[in-house]
């Protein structure tokens, strides 16, 4: 079951081509959905697609208002909606199928980008970095440094640790859920190599597990956005 990844080295940096492929596809899909849905905006009664976009936006706005209080920050709202759509689509990319080429050793080309810790940890680091940035911009650098020594100085180490822990849990929660789902899917789909009887036995569990993966993907995207808002709110107050 071990697949290596299609990696290339450019400018002394390693790029994982399969992740680049899937993240690009996910981004383009998010962009197209959002763009097509809001192409013909009306102030009157919204049509189906516009209604859909408005529903997503209201959903994220509710999450935002629950943790941040009444807030009209367009950047945080766009980040939340983009995250929700991007993560949901990224989580779903690996559910219907995966592409593995076998030459000298099997190379996995198509799976959920979020089933790779690089992607989720990058997003988590970006979000935690953004919360630190907000804190510095709102309260000044001095207050930011002092916040590590609160409520008293002895907790400095724990406060530092907390930042690493939140980053890690934020990224790895999503990664673990999606990765586990993919591994299970691969196992069930692999039953096809063991003959017709076993494959037909695995068909129904595979279907159920795929549905469950869709559910998990939606829940994890929601949790990621909610936690993002909570961490931002933590810095705002």
């Amino acid at each position: 079951m071990e697949h290596s990844r299609p990696q290339v080295v450019l400018f002394n940096l390693t790029f994982d081509l399969s992740i680049i492929l899937t993240t690009t596809v996910a981004s383009i899909m998010v962009f197209l959905i959002a763009y097509i849905a809001t192409r013909n905006l009306t102030e009157g009664i919204p049509k189906k697609l516009q209604n859909f976009m408005e529903w997503i936006m209201d959903f994220v706005k509710d999450i935002m208002n629950n943790s941040l209080g009444p807030n009209n920050n367009l950047f945080i709202l766009s980040t939340g909606v983009s995250l929700l759509m991007y993560l949901f689509i990224a989580n779903l990319l690996g559910v219907p199928f995966s592409i593995i080429t076998i030459e000298e050793h099997p190379v996995s080309w198509w799976r959920s980008p979020t089933a790779d810790a690089h992607v989720t940890m990058t997003l988590a680091i970006m979000i935690i970095a953004y919360t630190h940035f907000i804190d510095i911009r709102l309260h000044g650098f001095k207050h930011y440094l002092h916040s590590f020594f609160k409520p008293f100085k002895a907790l400095f180490a724990i406060n530092i640790l907390e930042q690493f822990a939140t980053t890690l849990t934020l990224g790895l929660r999503l990664f673990g859920n999606i990765y586990a789902g993919e591994v299970m899917l691969a196992l069930l789909a692999g039953a096809i190599t063991h003959g017709f009887a076993i494959a037909s036995l695995a068909a129904i569990p595979l279907l159920i597990w795929q549905a469950f993966c869709v559910f998990i993907g939606a829940i994890q995207a929601y949790i990621f956005v909610t936690l993002t808002m909570v961490y931002i709110a933590h810095r705002l107050t």
Binding site: Q7, V9, L10, F11, L13, T14, F15, D16, I19, I20, T23, T24, S27, V30, F31, A34, Y35, T38, M53, L74, F75, S78, T79, V81, S82, Y86, P113, D116, H118, V119, M121, T122, L123, M126
Partner: peptide, 23 residues
């Protein structure tokens, strides 16, 4: 692999800003 992370950070940032501006 740092390159993957940089690409991921870049594409998500671009996505957020484009969506913010256009949508």
């Amino acid at each position: 692999s740092l390159g993957t992370m940089i690409y991921q950070a870049l594409i998500f940032t671009v996505l957020v800003f484009i969506l913010k501006k256009l949508v």
